[in-house]
Design a protein around this nucleic acid. Sequence first.
DNA 1: ATTTTCAAT
Length: 185
Amino acid sequence: MDEHTFIENFSNQEWPSKTYLCYKVERLDGNATIPLDGYQGFVRNKGFDQLEEPRHAEFYFLEQIRSWNLDKNQRYRLTCFISWSPCYTCAQNLTTFLKENRHISLHIFASRVYTRDCFGCHQSGLCALQAAGARITIMTFEDFERCWETFVDHQGKPFQPWEGLEVKSQEFCEELQAILTTQQN
DNA sequence: ATTTTCAAT
């Protein structure tokens, strides 16, 4: 991913009308985690402008995972950095996937909390996803930096945080915490 | 004080 795309989409000061999702996979072997570098990459949503059926980024992510046919006798950890947190429908699809694939765990790092959901309640979607075992957190400075190091064609440049990164991250974190703790009982 | 959201005006 080029530098501009990363900043434009992952900056928590921006409100882009598109979503990028970076993913990586590790195999868990006892206490060891073995990165599967061949399986890492990123996807974005496709909209009406591309003459394809509009689909959210998570659709393509799930499509990728399914294509790998990860060995059910091994354990894997998926990590994804996503610029908007999953909508209700996508959260449900991920929930179903995790329930059907107990050998796979998922940790989602979201830059921003998506709240404009036309098809359902994004809060309950995220709660269900968490209940299915996913970890959902807001990206902090360290997470942006890790994403930058791993997925951006940074040409050796270190991650330069934008103004207000920490404050916004904290705000979204509180918003997400409120969502994930409210509906649990 | 504080919009915006995987678009469509």
